[in-house]
Simulated assay, not measured.
Amino acid sequence: MRRKLVVGNWKMNGDLARNRELLGALSTRVPDEVDCAVCVPFPYLAQARELLSGASVTLGAQDVSEFAEGAYTGEVSAAMLADFGCRYTIVGHSERRSMFGDDSALVGRKALAAMRVGLVPILCVGESLEERSSGRTEAVLRGQLDAVAGIVGASSLSKLVIAYEPVWAIGTGQAASAAQVQSVLSFVRGWLADRTPGADDVRILYGGSVKPESAGPLFGLPDSDGGLIGAASLIAAQFLGICEAARIAWQDNVRQFEGLK
């Protein structure tokens, strides 16, 4: 049975003092039943690694270079992230796609670079409001997923975490409905099942203005394995509330599983 995973994406936020306070609050209070990670800006990886030493919260990055090493000024390689103790790295976030030109082929190469050193890529996929309104959600997601699968190979798909983040719900305060989310998560699960025998092992997250009050219904969906959390991950009480919602959803899953025996 897949454990719930809650990942905080700090984006370009934080400073040494605020990081210390936030990570100090998280390090001893995340429920044991939930897997938790924080993806912090590159300059704070060393601080976060030190503050999370011995804690159950795992470290991650927000992006990674497609290149292993060399004359690529400003880039950060997967090996460097691993050297700082990262377990995860986000690839293909909608802000990277829309603002910095990361197309799906580049996202696939970044995912492959991460896998080569043992990092787990959190692959973000999602559609814009115009794409959803025109009925192209599944076609858009299929294109994003197919591009990455073509680069990392079907045998490596089970090593991904996939995060569905509808672009129209990121940072807008407008979360997708539970029915909308489950429809997409089910589509992604089916896409995986057609390509890898490990489809049931892949954790699929939802990201898009998740708050403690909305997390429970979203995490309780049949194909939901947790969330990729933006703004709420910067506020300890909210992030811990989301982790608690994940714990309750996990316990409900366990009870249902045991009831089927």
Rank of each mutant, 00 (worst) to 15 (best):
I122N: 03
A215V: 14
P212V: 04
D200N: 12
S183G: 15
R195S: 00
M1V: 06
Q144F: 14
R116M: 02
L141T: 04
V117I: 08
D83Q: 15
S65V: 11
C36L: 02
L218M: 07
A163E: 06
K159C: 01
A37M: 04
M99W: 12
V57C: 01
L234D: 01
G60K: 11
V120Y: 11
E130Q: 15
V188D: 02
G207Y: 07
E213I: 05
Q182T: 04
P121T: 06
V57K: 06
A48D: 01
D83W: 03
S56Y: 01
S214T: 15
I235V: 15
V125M: 10
V64Y: 11
T73R: 08
L160P: 02
Q144D: 10
Q144T: 11
S53N: 00
E165Q: 07
D200C: 08
Q47A: 04
D194I: 00
V91E: 07
K11F: 04
V188H: 06
R18N: 10
R132C: 05
Y72Q: 00
E75H: 14
Y72K: 04
G173Y: 10
G60V: 11
Q180W: 08
L119P: 12
G70Q: 12
A82W: 10
S77L: 09
G101D: 11
R18I: 04
V167R: 07
G208M: 11
V38M: 09
V40N: 00
G226K: 13
G198N: 11
Q238I: 00
A46K: 07
V57W: 05
R18C: 05
D63P: 01
F187H: 13
L240P: 07
L123D: 06
R20G: 15
G126A: 07
S214K: 15
I162Y: 10
G74C: 12
I242V: 03
R29K: 12
S155G: 07
G208W: 12
A193T: 01
G143A: 14
E130H: 12
I242W: 08
D201Q: 14
D252H: 10
S177I: 02
L260V: 09
A193Y: 01
A105I: 12
T28H: 09
S56Q: 04
